[in-house]
């Protein structure tokens, strides 16, 4: 905490005149030393202990209710969001891919809950949907989770008039919501109904609003712009799996780097190409030629019998 306020002091110093700057500089240096020392003292005893800041903020829960929590509990997107310009470069050497094993999905929706929570999404905006699919009348239905497919030939990026949505070298398709003009052409162009639009001013906690915007965290969210699943670049930068992958209790999602030929579902780490070969992996609507980064493994030999959760809910 003290570190942060020091930075602020320094910043203010930069803006004032030269003499003021020096004065502030000394002050800030002093504060930093003291602050740093204090921090050390504290960290010896309470390593990463969280101190309640006493700052209550309003947060939207996944079921759309506003609750008050202490701001120190909000650790989402603490770090890692690059500026809109910097986030146009991908993470060097990576090409992220996802494999979704349909035979293991039982519509537990843990992935969706984690996604809604970490991206501070309201009930009606779902970046990750689980569809109930049935390929033909005789075939049994199955659950199909669908994030953004992060196509290698993305139709949405093709049509964007202002370069607001872009493809990165690591395969991610992101949106710069400080540039988006809200024409919604990308929504019309996406064949997978992936994108959502901020039809009104989004409700967000105060501390999120204060942060500077980054396409890598997609917060703070902005009125009149489009949004979608971003594969959690803030997590990827830290070497962590996206939230949906780690939240799934059944290991449905494999995520990894195609350049490493390895994907991981949290428990198991396997060769990417071999997995596709062994389990007859495919991409949704390959015929469109969009070349998604998300692959599916067919819903054969299911882990769970198909249960219609919606009907169950109604009973």
């Amino acid at each position: 905490m003290s570190q942060k306020s020091d930075d602020k002091e320094k910043l203010e110093g930069d803006h004032s005149g030269r003499r003021d700057f020096l004065k502030f500089g000394f002050l800030a240096a002093g504060l930093t030393v003291v602050g740093g020392g204090l921090q050390k003292v504290f960290s010896d005893n309470k390593d990463s202990a969280k101190v309640e800041s006493g700052n209550k903020v309003k947060v939207l829960t996944t079921d759309g209710k506003l609750v008050e929590v202490d701001s120190s509990h909000l650790k989402a997107h603490e770090c890692c969001g690059a500026s809109p310009t910097d986030s146009r470069e991908g993470i060097p050497g990576k090409k992220y891919v996802m494999v979704i094993d349909l035979s293991r999905c039982k519509n537990a929706l843990k992935c969706q809950k984690a996604c809604q929570k970490h991206h501070l999404l309201p009930e009606q905006d779902k970046w990750l949907k689980v569809f109930k699919m049935q390929d033909s009348p005789e075939a049994s239905p199955y659950w199909m989770p669908k994030p953004c497919l992060h196509c290698d030939k993305p139709p949405c990026v093709k049509v964007c008039p202002v370069d607001a949505t872009f493809k990165r070298s690591d395969g991610l398709v992101l949106i710069d919501n400080e540039r988006c003009i809200g024409c919604r052409f990308c929504m019309a162009a996406c064949p997978y109904s992936t994108r959502t639009f901020n039809w009104e001013e989004p409700q967000q906690p105060a501390n999120i609003l204060e942060m500077s915007y980054s396409p890598e965290t997609s917060v703070p969210r902005k009125k009149g712009t489009v949004e979608k699943c971003d594969f959690c670049p803030d997590m990827l930068k830290q070497g962590n799996l996206p939230h949906c992958v780690s939240a799934c209790p059944n290991g449905v999602y494999y995520f990894g780097d195609a350049n490493e030929d390895t994907v991981c579902n949290g428990d198991e780490t396997v060769r990417f190409k071999q997995l596709l070969r062994d389990k007859a992996g495919y991409r949704y609507m390959e015929g469109l030629g969009t070349e998604p980064s998300v692959y599916y493994l067919p819903a054969a030999n299911r882990l769970f019998p198909f249960e219609d959760a919606e009907e169950v809910k109604e009973k």
Binding site: K153, P154, D163, F166, K167, N259
Partner: peptide
Amino acid sequence: ILPKVNPLTRRTLWSRG
């Protein structure tokens, strides 16, 4: 190292302006 996939190396309809 195997050759890396980089979807951005060519001039395409989905590249930057």
